[in-house]
Design a protein around this nucleic acid. Structure first.
Length: 427
RNA sequence: GGGGAGAUACCCAAGUGGCCAAAGGGAGCAGACUGUAAAUCUGUUGGCAACUGCCUUCGGAGGUUCGAAUCCUCCUCUCCCCA
């Protein structure tokens, strides 16, 4: 059984470690480990899954995970990785996001373990009512501006002549540093993990704790996860892949991973699943010898979907996939089945009577909003890229009548291989 | 304050009186090949109509001209150099 750090290293989690002794420290100690989550949106994305899974690994090897929702830090805005000042979110939005993020995090961690049950806390609780003057005296005094402006996140903004940085964002690192100190003092938390852009904030916390006479703290950062074609992970056609099933249906999440590039899939298996290294190596061999089976992609998609949406979500995603990639004409379905399968698909609602005398395919594409103009629709159709209920139609003036319905009131358009669109008819 | 350069379609960027709905590249979208991968190749990317037709578009407003993205005037903005 490799050590926790070796294991994380092997799985590609580790970009930087603040102190090489962390490994030996963990051999003989169990501690708590925290990761912070910024409530800047109403849901986390699969990018956030990395620190979440990091916490899970920590818990699996007997350390208490602490997930911190940034109710306080979110009010300030982290300059890390941002090349311009952020606009502040309203307090209501922030509180809503906090609640949503908290709910999501709670799904991944085990709170019932007797020895290392997870904690879910909000840094607003220990920062919100700290008096400004007291904070400056107690905490601010330990920060050297010289060191603060040397941090990468600040330096970039100071060097950029037209962007600059506000005092508010400049102060951010102090708040996050204080979090780390607070969590050490309150829960004995010795480790903070985060994305590589968090390095400066993490080391600020380590320094602060030392100045305040606390124990040695440790930090680990994860690499920025990019796909082989150079995109940041978690974007599908420019849309984020959210963990909230109302924002990103399980099927879409499943598809994102099943379409993973060969060059990425092994790396993702290590990061995003809890499969043993042996299983992953087996899948890698399979990828090498029989890439067309796409066994590795399938397992990856299954594991991640199960982790995020449970068995039920996985089943829904798989049944949708069977219909969508089955190549069979979609015919004689019932409305509810199709609605379930295509729940995430963009849709339009049209009055049923447009089909009574029929409508040309071009026309339908435009009035439903599937295509922006008739020219675009015509191009798509004549180039062979349009499918109606999985059947290719190349004649722009093909008449669509109620005979073309896939179910009682649904018609399915598709452009290319993957872009589906639903037309619902209402009476 | 003085001087110079520039603003073209989603982005970069050619075009400097008609042959310009506007080269080229990127990106996008489709097709072929495939494994729902990658790479490659092909087509396509203002709107309407559809056998060569019409309308809108080259920072904004005017003007010159039979005719302008292209020339002139004013305005707005961006960049550079000198104070």
């Amino acid at each position: 059984m490799p050590s926790l750090i070796k294991n994380l290293e092997e799985r590609g989690f580790i970009y930087q470690i603040s102190d090489p002794d962390l490994d030996t420290f963990l051999e003989t100690n169990n501690t708590s480990c925290y990761a912070g989550f910024d409530p800047s949106a109403g849901s986390l994305t699969i990018g956030h899954l990395i620190p979440i899974i990091g916490l899970m690994h920590m818990q699996n090897s007997g350390n208490r995970p602490i997930a911190v929702v940034g109710g306080a830090t979110g009010m300030i805005g982290d300059p890390s990785g941002k090349d311009q000042e952020r606009s502040l979110l309203s307090i209501e939005t922030l509180r809503q996001n906090e609640a949503a993020v908290k709910k999501q995090l709670s799904k991944f961690l085990d709170f019932d373990s007797k020895t290392c049950g997870a904690l879910l806390v909000n840094n607003y609780d220990w920062t919100g009512n700290y008096k400004y003057l007291d904070f400056l005296r107690d905490i601010g005094k330990h920060f050297s501006v010289n060191a603060m402006i040397a941090k990468e996140s600040v330096k970039i903004r100071l060097e950029s002549r037209d962007q600059g940085i506000s005092y508010t964002e400049f102060s951010y690192q102090i708040l996050q540093a204080y979090d780390f100190h607070h969590l050490w003092k309150t829960y004995g938390c010795r480790i903070q993990i985060g994305g590589s852009d968090q390095w400066g904030n993490i080391t600020a916390g380590i320094d602060l704790n030392r100045r305040l006479g606390g124990e040695q703290l440790y930090g680990i950062t994860f690499p920025l996860i990019m796909t082989a074609d150079g995109k940041k992970i978690g974007k599908s056609e420019g849309n984020a892949i959210w963990l909230d099933e109302n924002l990103t249906k399980p099927y879409v999440l499943y598809q994102y991973f099943i379409q993973a590039d060969d060059r990425d899939v092994v790396r993702f298996l290590k990061l995003y699943t809890f499969l043993s290294m042996k299983d992953i190596n087996d899948l890698e061999k399979c990828l090498e010898h029989e890439p067309e089976k796409r066994e590795a992609q399938k397992v990856l998609a299954q594991e991640v979907t199960k982790l995020v949406h449970g068995e039920r979500g996985l089943r829904a995603a798989e049944s949708a996939t069977r219909v969508l990639f089955g190549d069979e004409p979609i015919k004689n379905f019932d409305d509810d089945t199709l609605k379930a399968i295509f729940a995430e698909t963009p849709s339009a609602w049209l009055p049923r009577n447009i089909l009574t005398s029929g409508i040309t395919l071009v026309e339908l594409c435009v009035v439903s909003g599937f295509c922006k103009s008739k020219g675009e629709a015509r191009r798509l159709i004549t180039s062979g890229g349009l499918y109606c209920n999985n059947v290719r139609i190349t004649e722009p003036d093909f008449m669509i009548t109620k005979d073309q319905l896939a179910s009682k009131s649904i018609l399915i358009l598709r452009s290319g291989k993957k872009r589906y669109f639903l037309i619902h008819l209402k009476d």
